[in-house]
Computed example of a mutant assay.
Amino acid sequence: MVAMDNLQMTSQTAQFNLSAYLLEHQSLVEAALDRAISVVYPEKIYEAMRYSLLAGGKRLRPILCLATCQMAGGTLETAMPTACALEMIHTMSLIHDDLPAMDNDDYRRGKLTNHKVYGEDIAILAGDGLLAYAFEFVATNTFNVPAEQVLKVIAKLGRAVGAAGLVGGQVVDLESEGKTDVSLETLNFIHNHKTAALLEASVVCGGILAGMSEEDLQRLSGFSQNIGLAFQIIDDVLDITSTQEQLGKTAGKDLQAQKVTYPSLWGIEESLHQARQLIAAAIAQLEPFGDKATPLKAIAHYITSRTH
């Protein structure tokens, strides 16, 4: 995997302690998620929701939201409800993605998948519950932000997760399984919608909450779309090169499902090169924000250097 010091980071980014930053913000997100959902009657559904929501993970989407809001002059308190909602939506997508009707996986984040613990029926409902609660949580817990901006966030989240985003990408992904003639254009469509859309919402919503201009939001959109595709390329590479223990989920699933991936089209070395190019393009979008964008730049570099 490409080392971070080979990615021509600026000296400011190189001096930034990303590990400490991620740990601090991850801890804040974990605590907020734990507070967000209590176990009440009927206990099984809340336990199932919490099981997957609190199963760990990088919390990349919430952290991107928090980092962007802070860069734009907002506060952690302002962005945290949306950050939590993003993780609820992401967790829903993982629960449903792991179902036998979709990717049929037994492990996620090193633990048994939701349907393996609670059954397929409860797993579906747990995902539904998290999705619905995400929007409720933003609407009822976001304070000191103009209502118009909160509505924009809710609309952005809805589009990212619906047929114009994640759901649409998943449909084309399922339709493409087993096909040998899937084009690069189709593969990009899948991952621009299935992966990049929610990452873009994570970044852009942070900017919306802080009252950023439309011009700056467009820059954030370009940044996040590029890191979203780079993220997926690295995921595809890791599915080939990592073990189940490293990934926390079943390795080699793409090959088993006969999925076209970036490495299957380009090979591993060219895939890594393309990911680096996308990160460079993403970083360029942040130049107008100066040193305030250091955390976002560091996270972008981290995407291509991660091992799980």
Rank of each mutant, 00 (worst) to 15 (best):
S11W: 03
A14G: 06
Q15M: 11
L18V: 07
S19I: 06
E24W: 02
H25C: 08
L28M: 15
V29P: 01
A32R: 14
V39A: 07
V40G: 00
Y41T: 12
P42C: 01
I45C: 03
E47R: 12
E47C: 06
A48R: 04
M49N: 13
R50V: 01
A55T: 05
G57M: 04
R61T: 09
P62I: 03
I63G: 02
L64S: 11
A67P: 11
M71E: 10
A72W: 01
G73F: 08
T75P: 02
P81A: 03
P81D: 04
P81R: 00
L86I: 05
I89Y: 00
H90F: 03
S93Y: 00
S93V: 00
L94W: 05
L94D: 03
I95A: 08
I95N: 09
H96Q: 14
L99D: 03
R108E: 07
R108V: 03
N114E: 07
G129V: 01
A134D: 10
F135L: 10
E136K: 09
F137A: 01
F137R: 01
T142Q: 01
N144A: 15
N144W: 06
V145K: 05
V145I: 10
P146S: 11
V150P: 01
V150E: 00
V153Q: 11
G158I: 02
A160S: 15
G162A: 10
G168N: 08
V172G: 00
V172I: 11
L174G: 04
E175K: 08
L184W: 07
H193Q: 15
K194D: 10
A201K: 03
A201L: 05
V203A: 15
V204Q: 12
C205H: 02
G206Q: 12
L209F: 10
S213C: 01
E215T: 10
L220V: 06
G222A: 08
S224L: 09
S224Q: 12
I227G: 04
F231P: 01
D235S: 03
V237L: 10
T241G: 13
E245W: 02
E245M: 03
G248M: 09
A251F: 08
A257D: 15
Q258L: 11
T261G: 12
Y262S: 09
P263R: 07
S264V: 02
L265F: 08
W266P: 10
G267L: 07
I268W: 11
E270G: 00
H273I: 05
Q274P: 05
Q277F: 04
A280K: 12
A281M: 13
E287S: 13
F289W: 05
A293E: 12
I299R: 00
I303N: 07
T304Y: 09
